[in-house]
């Protein structure tokens, strides 16, 4: 059982850091949903919001790492001009060409929304701190922007998994 360098990077990009962002999402969303005056009171507020802020900054960092490794490490192997690259193999067969034309074309662009949106959401949570409990509009904005980051990452992740099944990066 062994992995090539390319397979290892593909696993790091998709199954380690990319997946970590996706599975961490519910923790952040639950934290944001819980920040309501009727649900959260007392001295613990500051600690809870600080923990949520750290969580969201970490998620934003993970999103950045995912897109940077995806674009600058794995993608060049995927799109290499040689006939054995995943892109060449997919395009050579009309039955699989759409995986590239639609799947990869969407994935490579939509993924980049995730770090931008996750960073903005993390900033809003960090900036307001415990005041976020009182700021319904800001809380809602952070939640929606954060959820859109998840949507972008999920689309990229799902297509990444399918593409790697149709034409693995080796």
């Amino acid at each position: 059982m062994s992995l090539t360098v390319r397979e290892t990077w593909t696993v790091i990009h998709g199954m380690v850091i990319g997946a970590l962002f996706l599975v961490s999402f519910t923790g952040g969303l639950f934290g944001l949903l819980s920040l309501k005056p009727e649900l959260i009171t007392g001295e613990g507020t500051r600690k809870i919001v600080a923990r949520l802020s750290n969580w969201m900054w970490t998620m934003a960092a993970i999103a950045w790492l995912t897109v940077i490794t995806g674009t600058y490490v794995v993608y060049p192997w995927y799109r290499a001009a040689d006939p054995s690259s995943p892109r060449s193999l997919l395009l050579a067969n009309p039955a699989t060409a759409e995986w590239h034309e639609f799947g990869m074309e969407w994935k490579e662009h939509v993924a980049w929304f995730a770090p931008l949106l996750a960073t903005a959401a993390a900033y809003v949570v960090w900036y307001y701190g415990k005041q976020l409990v009182q700021e319904e509009k800001a809380r809602k904005a952070a939640m929606v922007v954060f959820s859109l980051a998840f949507f972008a990452a999920a689309v990229a992740g799902i297509f990444g998994a399918f593409l790697n099944k149709a034409a693995p990066t080796r």
């Binding site: 507020t45 307001y128 005041q131």
Partner: peptide, 27 residues
């Protein structure tokens, strides 16, 4: 939780700047 005084309150400007700029960045 101690009541937040008006002087403690953070204005919305910096949060709005983060939101609008990410909107423009996305576009």
């Amino acid at each position: 939780m101690a009541a937040m005084t008006e002087s403690d309150r953070k204005p919305s400007g910096p949060a709005a700047a983060a939101l609008l700029s990410v909107g423009v960045g996305s576009l």
